[in-house]
Design a protein around this nucleic acid. Structure first.
Lengths: 257, 257
DNA sequence: CGTTTGATTGACCTTAGTCAAGAGGCGTGG
DNA sequence: CCACGCCTCTTGACTAAGGTCAATCAAACG
């Protein structure tokens, strides 16, 4: 088969195809056609309100693996939502020791921690290619004042974020924590309509270990153990869960009866 | 010395002393004269706004040790603030196992977790005699809509609560966690104007252990160790911290150089 | 004044962390 | 294209921190 290589710019292609010059933001997703809208700030808003809200959203930024979104201590101005990809959020103490680590997946909001002291308390970096939507806190406050249902969904999102933090259990064993982690990722991926049993982890073993308060070796051994017990299949960072029920049982601490 | 025992009701005493019948809410603190106002929801409000806000606050309830404020799974209607005393907040999983535990001291807000699913995700019980102020979420939403600075302080409080949860460090040693816990209590007590170095813990050793993800025996041993090292003095639940600086050093993991 | 509940202390054991070595990928540059 | 070095991950052997079990003590409470 012979391949024909065309050298043609996107702008030209666009204008040929649509018979009109390419606008500034040609293929951009707006809130009212975003698949995450029901998980995100505009949830519960009317069509008109969503369009009004959308007007204040910045979507230019694409971050690559390792890029910084904001740093702990930076002055706080904007709230961000992960549109696609994933972020790692972490906190260092005065000595530079890591004191906390979380992940933000598509549809999840980051930066709310900055409101109180007008500075971010966490650093955020992309752990894969990541698109984010941003809104300034000033705009958000004004909009929430004018749109009661936005105010309500913001409170709701805050509440959800609080609940999410209750899930790390200090008393759980390594096995329980790890099972709970996999279930959490599964649920978060599934919430956006993807498979709950097949996904790839964008975070390193080391990040998982830090998040769970374990050593990387322990995480590695748990992957092996669960794989040996046929609970899941793992190939690099590609995970296929075979027995979701068993994971649930393990996460509650009834692993080996 | 001879004691004279008078049997006389508060109502009667009030009317004798003030020469007027006792009103329904005689000695009640209002938001505009409450010492916690600058930590609480009305922070940043004008005098007039505080008085408007105050109108929606219920203050009748006094809870005794062991009394339940709300239960995990109860329908969510109200947000509460601890005016004096202390609460224990805890979460059980489906199996009835404890999965999380926190404390709320005077000036701290509880119930925000309930907003998202319209039910409380934590149970709250008093661990000493506790007075709370309550407001219904409905009223709060309406007020926040009308009073921009209230909306702003609510977001700020939410943000603060999120930050507070980042402080539990899964990678810390028993010693570090314990030191951090004492520092946290110290700071929270001091914020209300009380001594940062002398306070009494209203929670049991078991509660502290659960909160820190340790065994009660370990907590007991840590109290002894710190006491032996002259970092603090402990008598039952009465704590006197001698060396706050050393606690800070320990909490960062530089205990024994 | 016994009974109960919470705290302390000691002896022992388990879990998971540490150290060390090796394997598998990935990108860079010769 | 292959070789080299650099990561990340895996696996094994040993160790230590802290959990468990059990006994004792102290305070609280009816």
């Amino acid at each position: 088969m012979t391949a024909i290589h065309l050298s043609i710019s996107l702008t030209t292609l666009y204008s040929i195809y649509f018979a009109t010059p390419m606008p500034d933001k040609p293929f951009q997703i707006a809130c009212d056609n975003c698949s995450l809208a029901n998980l995100c700030m505009p949830m519960g808003l009317s069509q008109a309100e969503i369009q009004r809200f959308d007007h204040f959203i910045q979507r230019e930024k694409i971050f690559h693996k390792g890029d910084t979104i904001f740093r702990q201590g930076d002055p706080f101005h904007t709230i961000a939502v992960v549109r696609s990809g994933a972020l790692k959020l972490y906190q260092l103490d005065e000595e530079g020791e890591l004191t906390g680590l979380q992940f933000a997946l598509a549809g999840e909001i980051v930066g709310l921690d900055g409101i109180k002291d007008e500075q971010y308390h966490l650093s955020a970096i992309a752990i894969e290619t990541t698109a984010i939507c941003q809104i300034t806190y000033q705009d958000l406050l004004h909009l929430a004042q004018e749109i009661p249902s936005l105010q309500k969904s913001l409170f709701s999102l805050f509440s959800q974020q609080l609940n999410h933090h209750y899930h790390v259990n200090l008393n759980a064993t390594a096995e329980q924590r790890f099972a709970k982690f996999l279930l959490s990722i599964s649920a978060r991926v599934a919430r956006r309509g993807y498979s709950a049993t097949q996904f790839n982890l964008s975070m390193s073993r080391q990040d998982i270990a830090c998040y769970l308060g374990l050593a990387t070796e322990t995480v590695s051994r748990l992957f092996k153990r669960f794989s040996d017990e046929n609970i899941l299949a793992v190939k690099k960072r590609e995970i296929k869960i075979h027995d979701l029920r068993q994971l649930q049982i393990i996460s509650c601490g009834h692993s080996h009866p």
